[in-house]
Write a protein that binds this DNA or RNA. Structure first.
Length: 326
DNA sequence: AAGACGAAAGTGGTTGA
DNA sequence: TCAACAACTTTCGTCTT
């Protein structure tokens, strides 16, 4: 085969790496061929080798169904940030079936000793455990935990962890990623499941936002509505009604500087009341993790600001005699 | 009796000097 | 770093349903 023009490694994510040209750089022909038997991409016209040492990511042999394809695949699980070495190591234990013999146990122990070598690796393993524990406790999706782990790795590479509490950093990162994903978990909720206090988390959060140059928007009360309404067993109508109230409150500037969970709680309280699904302040407060006083203060502001006691503009079907006290 | 209301005092976070 | 401020919480007595 001809000259080697490009010796870049094959990108395993694509059939043909995007870095490789679509046309032959020598003759301009577009008849480039992937030859997996030789591990090369070459031009069928002039014979120039565009790339070599390609890895065939496909199955070992022909497969006639998805089950066979899965069995015959030659690659392992995808890389993940949630394992300290991105899941690239392997364990001899996996390949031993039944009772372990002496040499198998010795091999396993030796492998465990080499699993984490440095103290930073060990603390990283601990941090990943914390991310997994808190993520599961907060019922967060796997992708969110993955991103948190990736951010922790980034912070570690920038030497931002040393001298700070791992729990504080992991909790702060988890909350930051929640905000980036628009997942409604208040700082209070995240703090409840963390092993450190809110003060420590807040400090770490400010530090990381600054050092990692991250931007997170402040939480909107609307984000909390679906989850709170679900816990309170409220109807879809009440939920959309709550969102309508909040949208109008935001437009009117009634939510400025206010705790979004307090605003959400008050809007839920009002909407449920007006929609004949009344929930007591006590129940709404405990669900939304605010006090009854906060609900009272917020709903007083909202009901006055939006004139909800007249509420014909918000809801106008057959409930005109109802009025919330206050 | 339960739920709602409002006042007062205390707490912790934010902001600007 | 610190004081001032606004938001929020806790507590408690009172009122309403």
């Amino acid at each position: 085969m001809g000259k080697i023009k490009n010796d870049k490694e094959y990108c395993p994510d694509e059939k043909r790496c995007l870095e490789y040209p679509r046309n032959c750089p020598e003759c301009g022909s577009n008849s480039l061929v992937n030859d997996y038997s030789k591990g090369e991409i070459f031009c069928a016209n002039c014979g120039l080798v565009i790339a070599e040492k390609l890895i065939d990511p496909g199955s070992e042999r022909r497969a006639f169904d998805s089950e066979q394809a899965a069995k015959r695949i030659r690659t392992g699980a995808s890389m993940t940030h949630r394992i300290h070495d991105k899941g690239l190591s392997t364990s001899p234990i996996k390949f031993f079936f039944g009772a372990k013999t002496g040499w198998q146990n010795r091999l396993r122990d030796a492998q465990r000793r080499t699993y984490t070598q440095t103290s930073s690796e060990r603390s990283f393993v601990f941090a990943l455990g914390e991310i997994d524990r808190m993520g599961s406790g907060l019922r967060l999706p796997e992708c969110l935990k993955e991103d948190t782990a990736a951010l922790y790795r980034k912070a570690m590479e920038k030497h931002l962890i040393r001298g700070r509490s791992i729990e504080g950093i992991t909790t702060a990162l988890l909350h930051i990623v929640c905000r980036q994903y628009g997942v409604s978990r208040s700082l209070k909720e995240v703090t409840e499941i963390s092993r450190v206090g809110q003060k420590e988390i807040n400090r770490a959060r400010h530090f990381l936002l600054q050092k990692l140059d991250l931007k997170v928007s402040s939480a909107s009360p609307i984000e909390f509505v679906p989850r709170f309404c679900s816990i309170l067993n409220l109807s879809e109508e009440t939920k959309s009604y709550t969102i309508e109230i909040i949208k109008r409150a935001i437009e009117t500037g009634l939510t400025n500087g206010r705790d979004p969970t307090g605003t959400a709680a008050a809007a839920i309280y009002i909407a449920a009341f007006l929609n004949n699904e009344h929930r007591t302040q006590k129940v709404v407060a405990s669900t939304c993790r605010v006090t009854e006083v906060t609900i009272r203060n917020r709903y007083k502001e909202i009901s006055q600001g939006l004139q909800i006691d007249r509420y014909s503009s918000i809801k106008n079907s057959g409930q005109k005699n109802k009025k919330i006290r206050g």
